[in-house]
Amino acid sequence: APLTPSSALPPYFMKGSIIQLADGELKRVEDLRTEDFLQSAEVSTELKIDSSTVERIDSSRTPDAVIIQFSVGEHKAQVCVEVLVEYPFFVFGQGWSSCCPDRTTQLLALSCAKLSVGDVCISLTLKSLR
């Protein structure tokens, strides 16, 4: 079953929010690049970056929400999430993207591209324990 979206976006997506990378460097959320996530995950002992390809975007019965189906990782595991239309995802090589970029910019001041089927988002999984 899809996850239930929260009624408000987390504060760290607001433009100007300070983000700490794994090596301690501080960056504003709007300045993050694909390399920042990849390098931070390399340092992490628990987390690894996976590619999550957007397979479907469907409307939700929840107002202002969508259900996004991702194909995650090399095994192409199908994962559905229900999020608000303005929720930003980080697309490889493109940056922040949401289903409704105008609304994201309006609410968070964060510049976004339009999230579309076929986009490859950055997501996290646990590294396998050895």
Binding site: I18, Q20, S40, S52, A77, V81, C121, L124
Partner: peptide
């Protein structure tokens, strides 16, 4: 006297959705 406000700092991984695959290796 105005106390300086501390600026919140968020860890990088909080920005990334945690999409655990439903199948294991």
């Amino acid at each position: 006297n105005v106390e300086p406000r501390s600026v919140p700092v968020f860890p990088w991984h909080s920005l990334v959705p945690f999409l655990a695959p439903t199948q294991s290796d």
